[in-house]
Design a protein around this nucleic acid. Structure first.
Lengths: 236, 236
DNA sequence: CGTTGCCTTGACCAGCATCAAGGAGCGTGG
DNA sequence: CCACGCTCCTTGATGCTGGTCAAGGCAACG
């Protein structure tokens, strides 16, 4: 077992509760109050491993902050398969325990957890909740498919452009304006399957082309959303 | 609406019924007989577009054969995001209709379809079925994550090795023995985001290295499963 | 003030996309 | 029966892209 370093509140915390809303699909995450009361909230430090949340087969939501789902190859290479943001849910499949690990990306990430026991107890009384789980799972599917499309672009600049657009929609709901990247260049590299240096170069290329404007390494303004879209789609 | 060219049997066909089993998780797809009776079966010709199945928001299973889920970019490039095999289910998300299309890959692919209407009717009487949907959706998630890991490899040979191993497990349940690829080199290329020529060259490279043996272009024997795994993991 | 993590740039070379060509298998029609 | 067109697969030549190694800047932090 993993020793969780932060305090856990055993019941619903009114401070945290309202944040459990999917930005992509606000109406979706209407967690029934009964379910809410059965959840355990946890706050995580940066880079802290939170896989222990899921070892018993329970479910988990990100309330605030970011969680990343990683796989580490034999060769030592790390691959990020998913970035889990506020409102998103995640669970550990039967085969996942061996391949995947979870870490908090941002300091003070808060998760809401539903243990297998509480889940079972709740489900027997209220089987309709699976409908919500089904829809949440479909959201994950849509997210992974988008990620596959981003990784499927040919050049690095296209990948980065598509990635920034995707991040922009996921973080703010819009594809223009400014994004504050919650992840480092290293994380982006491992998420896209390219080298850090290439990430850096591609961002510089987009900046030189006048498609984005940097305000520090993390804050990126999309000065030309249309152009970014064309770039992402591999227009020549 | 799309004119479906093949005959449809309105009720459960005893010939087709037993095939609706997931090879990956046999116990999972125990479709309740009541649900089975509400399904519509369709047989598709090769390359036939079967997106019309899903426009009403219903669900679909592949009974036999293969369905591919594609996205086509502005630039005309095609990307395959998923290969759907017997026992797997698929549905059309709200945003999917614009981006994705579905086609039968193999001649005579059979699908089982549950219309939105039948689904609704059935669900009100039996809400527990969503549990099955949830688990099926989790299977899709696991599949997409594996695909992301395959695409995340660095060199083309690693990608192809990982892809062949994955195909092998998905088609036969084992990682050794022979695989008969249900897809063309072009499909593999569009699934991995690399050029056809590179696919061909990578397969030749694996053959020359003694890791596989070709018996015609589609039938591939894994003569050295261990070596394939090492190759896929980027061992040097 | 040194250390550490993160980001950027340069130089170099392997690997892949691209263009081009040719072969194998197959169904169609003469 | 063969000629033809078609799709699919393979191989070669070439130029560009990105991985790798190396170095340096910058900010936060002890």
């Amino acid at each position: 077992m993993y020793a969780v370093s932060a305090a856990q509140t055993r019941s619903a915390n009114p401070d945290l509760r309202p944040h459990i809303r999917s930005s992509a699909d606000p109406e979706l995450m209407d967690v029934p109050p009964e379910l809410d009361a059965a959840m355990t909230f946890t706050r995580w430090r940066r880079e802290e491993d939170c896989a222990a949340l899921l070892t018993d087969g329970g479910l988990c939501w990100v309330v605030s902050g970011i969680i990343r789902k990683c796989a580490v190859h034999e060769s030592g290479q790390r691959r990020i398969v998913d970035l889990i943001m506020p409102g998103d849910f995640f669970a550990l499949g039967p085969a996942d325990a061996r391949t995947f690990s979870f870490q908090a990306v941002t300091e003070g990430t808060v998760t809401a957890r539903l243990t297998q026991r509480n889940l079972n107890r709740f489900i027997t009384e209220n089987p309709g909740v699976y409908c919500m789980f089904y829809r949440l799972a479909c959201n994950v599917i849509a997210r992974l498919e988008e990620q596959l499309l981003v990784q499927g672009r040919t050049t690095a600049a296209e990948k980065i452009a598509a990635y920034l657009l995707l991040m922009s929609t996921r973080l703010s709901g819009a594809q223009d304006g400014a994004v504050v990247l919650p992840v480092s260049r290293y994380d982006i590299a491992d998420h896209l399957g390219i080298a850090v240096e290439t990430v850096s170069r591609a961002i510089t290329e987009l900046r030189r082309a006048g498609l984005i404007h940097l305000d520090g390494p993390r804050r990126i303004e999309m000065t030309d959303a249309r152009g970014m879209q064309r770039k992402a789609d591999g227009a020549r």
